[in-house]
Amino acid sequence: MNVLFAQVGGSAIDTFLTKLIDGLALGAIYALMALGFVIIFKSTQVLSFAHGAISALGAYLVAYFITVLNWPGRYLESLPVTLSFIISAMVGIAAAAVMGMLIERVFIRPMIGEPLFSIAMITIGLDIILRTILGDYLGQGAQADVGSPWGLLSTSNISGVIVPHSYVATIVAAIAVVIVLVLFFRTRTGVAMRATAFDQEAAMAQGISAGRIFALAWGIGAALAAVGGIFASVSPRGFGVSPGTPFFALRAFPAIIIGGLDSIPGAVVGGFAVGIAEVMAGHYLAPFADQLGAGFSQIVPYVIMLGFLLFRPYGLFGTEEIRRV
């Protein structure tokens, strides 16, 4: 995928800026995934391993609406591709949110108070189930096209810096999501959510329904996963939804470890940092590809994460766990 933009002419600084935009776009996807993880974790103490499957299913729904059903283009013939994509994306994201809430209500709610790893294992089980269903719809080795709302490979060349349009859209969308979230956490519901994350009992004593907050957190988390999954499937990052799409969420794990498992600013910073590091390593260490092995850039986040854990086990912004006897 990134090979398409490997042939960067021009000066070193142009190459660097081109790669920076690539890294920011990848980082935006990681940040979206990481935000979903963190919101779910902060509210319910659940680390959702089903995140990848939810993101891929959300993206698959978009692909289904656009390419299979040709909806909404079927009704509005003159609708621009981008608008049609955005409408489908909204529906796909909403569907993912509903799925997240369902998962919370059916599988996670009965497990409140159980060991955290047991709940995490349930989400792994759900991940397997959802991926199996997705695999059944996708078929063997097939990909579902989500359409090319910003053109298949359309780029702008701004004085030597190559800027793919879909990367810009990814970065803009991630920033918009962060702004919306910041505003949301100032609303009444947002404050209730923060209060519940801080102390469930105290929040319930103030009349906040903790169960509703849990459902909401899973809804938001799943919606963010779907947004990330959609942008991970749009060309040139990915060519449609494939069985590999869920792995974007797994590669966002280093982002939340680096940022701190329970820190929302940490998720954003960690996501962008990991994305940039992955792209930069992929480009600047390419001469050593023989020693490092093909595709080594994909494990760069994990290597950084392991190194990070030695020095700051609870991440940049995470709260250090206080242990009492």
């Binding site: 047991s118 792994i124 089980g125 189930i129």
Partner: peptide, 14 residues
């Protein structure tokens, strides 16, 4: 089998 495997994990834990 994959579906059953995932379901079994969830059902047993719950």
């Amino acid at each position: 089998n994959g579906l059953l495997f995932g379901l079994l994990i969830a059902v047993f834990l719950i």
